[in-house]
């Protein structure tokens, strides 16, 4: 559920980029931020370690403008993928309206993707959300790797549908805007009062 401020006529949605460590979540967010025009975006905040691994989250606000009398905002977050940041990861999902799962197409990361995806489902359930109905997009990132895993292979392992899956090369911006577009549309379509 987005946060609606009736007094100031504002609606805020929260979109979270989830996924295993090093899969390219921050790269996605940084690219989107770079592509948007200055008038609609706020500063990008990254809380990371010296090695640029996300420690708590990355964040930037995006102002969609005035829609039907309401000022609409998307608050964009990434979570830290590293295993031992489980507590912070769960916190960031609180109040989320949609989640982009950024998977790593490297074959050696297959298990890690699966584990992380299941953790995300557990995190969602901890907020009484049904992961199978929750707006989510699965992005296979790092399609530039020569031995990339097949599209669809994670879904069959997880036993989920494949209708909101995309490939991407976040370092080159490929598939990044398509992903956020698909995510945003799902979030808006699920919106109800």
């Amino acid at each position: 559920m987005p946060y609606i401020n009736y007094e100031n006529k504002e609606i805020s949605f929260k979109i979270v980029y989830y996924g295993p460590g090093m899969s390219g979540k921050t790269t996605n967010l940084v690219y989107i931020h770079k592509m948007l025009s200055d008038e609609i975006k706020g500063d990008l905040i990254t809380l990371d370690t010296e090695e640029e691994r996300t420690l708590f989250f990355d964040f930037f606000p995006l102002d969609l403008g005035n829609i039907a009398g309401y000022r609409v905002r998307f608050n964009m977050y990434t979570i830290p993928g590293q295993i031992y940041y489980e507590a912070s990861r769960r916190l960031m999902l609180e109040g989320a309206d949609g989640v982009v799962f950024v998977a790593d197409s490297s074959p050696i990361r297959f298990d890690y993707n699966i584990m992380s995806y299941q953790m995300m489902e557990d995190n969602l359930r901890s907020y009484d959300l049904n992961p199978r109905e929750f707006p989510s997009v699965l992005q296979y990132n790092k399609r530039d790797l020569s031995e990339a895993i097949e599209l669809g292979s994670l879904e069959s392992e997880l036993g989920i549908g494949t209708d909101s899956t995309l490939g991407a090369v976040a370092t080159q911006g490929e598939g990044v805007m398509e992903t956020i577009r698909m995510m945003s549309k799902m979030v808006i379509e699920q919106f109800e009062l």
């Binding site: 309401y70 911006g173 805007m177 945003s184």
Partner: peptide, 16 residues
């Protein structure tokens, strides 16, 4: 109405 406008806007904002 909100959804219709928002979906339109999203197409404009998130272009590659």
């Amino acid at each position: 109405q909100f959804k219709e406008y928002a979906l339109n806007l999203i197409d404009q904002i998130f272009t590659a």
